Amino acid sequence: MDLHARLEDVFRQVFDNDQLTLRDDMTATDIEGWDSVAHINLMFGIEQAFGIRFKGNELADMTNIGELKQFLSGKVPC
Rank of each mutant, 00 (worst) to 15 (best):
K55P: 08
F44G: 07
T63C: 05
R53P: 07
T27N: 14
M1S: 01
I52H: 09
S36G: 00
F71I: 00
K55R: 12
V14E: 01
L7W: 04
F15E: 03
G66M: 01
F71G: 01
E58S: 02
T27M: 12
A38T: 03
D61K: 15
Q13V: 13
F50G: 03
D30H: 15
K55N: 14
I31M: 07
F44A: 09
T21G: 13
T21R: 15
I65N: 04
E8N: 09
D18H: 14
W34I: 02
D35N: 11
M1F: 06
L7Y: 13
L20K: 00
I65Q: 03
V10R: 06
D61V: 14
H4R: 07
D24A: 12
C78W: 12
R12G: 05
F54V: 02
L59Y: 06
K69V: 03
G74H: 15
K75Y: 06
M1P: 10
G74C: 12
G74E: 12
F44R: 11
R6F: 01
L3K: 01
A38I: 04
D16T: 12
G45D: 04
T29I: 12
F71R: 01
N64W: 03
L20D: 03
G33Q: 05
E32D: 15
R23M: 15
D16L: 14
T63E: 14
A5K: 06
E47L: 01
D16S: 15
L3C: 00
E32H: 14
K75Q: 12
F15H: 09
A38H: 06
T63H: 11
G33S: 11
F44Q: 13
G33R: 14
A60F: 08
S36R: 02
L59K: 02
L59D: 03
H4I: 12
A5Q: 13
L68H: 05
D30E: 06
R12I: 00
L59V: 05
N41E: 12
A38E: 11
T29L: 14
V14T: 04
